[in-house]
Design a binder for these strands. Structure first.
Length: 116
DNA sequence: GTGGTGACGACAC
DNA sequence: GGTGTCGCCACCA
């Protein structure tokens, strides 16, 4: 994908970029991405970016983004049990819509990435 | 133009 | 430590 670098959409662009970089079998949180962008208080915007990602021409692994508790809050937006299913396929343990081994699979962009 | 809402998170109580 | 409240800002009615 391409960085548009419009300051209005910069937040969204980087969110998509980061989400695309999440390795298989790993997950990250909205807050982690927001923190990576330097505005941890805008975590809601990360969630909104995921919501907006549906109308993108390309698709991003939004199922690898969960909230701070490892809870699959966005599950309902995927329809059915799709989100938990995809994560399970990648070796992530899900129980009651929550990632049981969240610590182990957590992927922190601010530690794993160095582009910012 | 205004107000309410949201795939969240931090802090106060 | 559970619950409430606020901040964040794009989007929609």
């Amino acid at each position: 994908m391409v960085f548009s670098m419009n300051k209005n959409n910069l937040f969204f662009e980087i969110v998509y970029q980061v989400v695309e970089l999440i390795p298989e079998g790993r997950v990250t949180s909205y807050g982690a991405i927001a923190a990576y962008l330097g505005s941890k208080q805008s975590s809601r915007m990360v969630g909104w970016a995921m919501n907006a990602s549906h109308h993108l021409s390309y698709s991003i692994p939004a199922h690898r983004v969960v909230n701070r508790n490892g809870l699959l809050t966005g599950k309902s937006h995927f329809g059915g049990n799709k989100m938990a299913d995809l994560l399970t396929q990648e070796g992530i343990k899900i129980e009651e819509n929550q990632i049981t081994n969240f610590k182990e699979v957590f992927w922190d962009p601010s530690k794993e990435l160095t582009i910012l």
